[in-house]
Simulated scan of single mutants.
Amino acid sequence: MRAINPWINFNGNAEEAFNFYRSVLGGEFTKIIRFKDLANEQFQVSYEDAHKIMRIGLPIGKSNVLLANDVPSFMGTVNENENRSKIVVNAESREEAEQLFNGLSAGGEVEGPIDDSPWGTYAGMFRDKYGIEWIIEFDPNI
């Protein structure tokens, strides 16, 4: 398997969230596609949804991409507080783990402070300011 890439749904703030993620994780976005870019006779796009993100990607590391979209209004809203899936980031050092944890958790809610875990890693868990849950972990044995 080459990679598993998480895909997140947002309620109109995908671009804002991804600019925040890029400020912490670095990198450059892959092509950003907006709903208006896909509009045609068979796929009508409302004015409200025209500038929303249909697809955005942020490469992370060598073979992973964090992906997202805004949910168009005709599909309803996403309850971000009900989302219990987590994005796990495996850092290359304790220092990188701390940097990522502190950066991505800013403005969010820490569920488990970053510290030595009972299973031998350095890990922490939080929900970021966009409602997305993350685990940042460094395993010195890998």
Rank of each mutant, 00 (worst) to 15 (best):
M1H: 05
R2S: 12
A3H: 11
I4G: 12
W7Y: 15
F10M: 10
G12Q: 03
A14V: 05
A14T: 10
E15P: 00
Y21M: 14
Y21A: 10
R22D: 12
R22W: 11
S23A: 15
S23H: 14
V24Q: 13
L25F: 07
G26N: 07
F29E: 01
T30W: 03
K31I: 02
I32A: 06
I33K: 07
D37P: 01
L38H: 10
L38I: 05
L38A: 04
A39S: 06
A39I: 00
Q42G: 11
F43Q: 11
F43H: 07
F43G: 02
Y47N: 11
D49I: 00
A50F: 07
K52M: 01
K52G: 00
I53T: 13
I53W: 08
M54G: 00
M54F: 07
R55K: 07
G57H: 13
L58G: 09
I60D: 08
K62N: 15
L66R: 08
L66F: 13
L67I: 09
A68S: 15
N69M: 14
V71K: 01
P72W: 11
S73E: 09
S73V: 08
F74Q: 14
G76Q: 01
G76T: 02
T77E: 04
E80V: 09
N83F: 00
R84E: 08
R84I: 04
R84L: 07
S85C: 14
K86N: 15
K86G: 12
K86A: 15
I87M: 08
I87K: 11
V88H: 15
V88N: 14
V88G: 11
N90T: 06
S93Y: 03
S93V: 02
S93E: 00
E96P: 04
A97W: 09
A97M: 13
A97E: 11
L100V: 14
N102D: 10
S105L: 10
V110T: 12
V110E: 08
E111V: 03
E111G: 14
E111M: 14
G112D: 11
D115T: 09
D116R: 11
D116G: 05
S117K: 07
S117E: 04
G120L: 13
Y122M: 05
A123I: 01
A123L: 03
G124K: 06
M125W: 07
F126A: 04
F126I: 03
R127T: 04
K129S: 01
G131Q: 05
E133K: 14
W134L: 03
W134G: 02
I135H: 00
F138G: 04
F138S: 06
N141W: 05
N141L: 09
I142W: 02
I142N: 07
